[in-house]
Amino acid sequence: MAMIQFKNISKWYGSFQVLTDCSTQLQKGEVVVVCGPSGSGKSTLIKCANGLEPFQQGELLVNGVSVGESKTNLPKLRSQIGMVFQHFELFPHLSVMQNLTLGQTRVLGRSQDEADQKAKLLLDRVGLAVHAQKFPGQLSGGQQQRVAIARALAMDPIAMLFDEPTSALDPEMVNEVLDVMVALAKEGMTMMVVTHEMGFARKVSDRVVFMDAGRIVEDCAKEEFFGAPRSPRAQEFLSKILSH
């Protein structure tokens, strides 16, 4: 059974259709990169997976639980899936440490001690242990995004969603974030990553999903996608972003 399964997902904003009939899946331990031109619905699709964006048609299963079902306990489902956002979204009124422990204590019911220990371990892992007592606003973009990844990992998620994690970063900070993500992928974390970082896709992804105008145009193994994408739209996209 797939960890996350999208079955014919369609979504409208008013009369404007943003997602059309999107089907794909994420197996346990798999790393899937979602790419495509801006406005193609990538971020919307990934936000559907933990119910941050509602959808009107189709079925979405996370670990066998239907996300769209009204009786589904969404908070509980979300607590099992880590999410990393384009603009980090650390809580600016809380210290780095508190950012990492809040969900653990309030949502998972861990003790403060246990949460602190876990947080320290993860901060150490992303190389930011010395900044534990600082506030997010005192960190660089790259550091903030690494804290955000650690915050998501602190919940011991069964899968991680990344929504353009590096596209708001200054170029020199992109790699420090990608390094953390590559390490995570190599450890076997189940990941769905919306990104334009084709280097990352080549290095660690298992599959690539290419979207255009709200549709999944291509969904294939990495080698196939970079070797010979079938759709002209994907060929054009690749030639544009890989040409320099």
């Binding site: 969404l74 908070p75 998972l108």
Partner: peptide, 30 residues
């Protein structure tokens, strides 16, 4: 308070009331 803050709270598994009490209102008050 930016929508992303609400998303971030939700993504951690917080309920509406937790999100308001712990994330949104403290920032709004300030």
């Amino acid at each position: 308070i930016p929508r992303g803050q609400v998303f971030a709270g939700q993504a951690l598994g917080m309920t509406y009331s937790q999100n308001m009490r712990l994330i949104v209102l403290p920032q709004a008050f300030r």
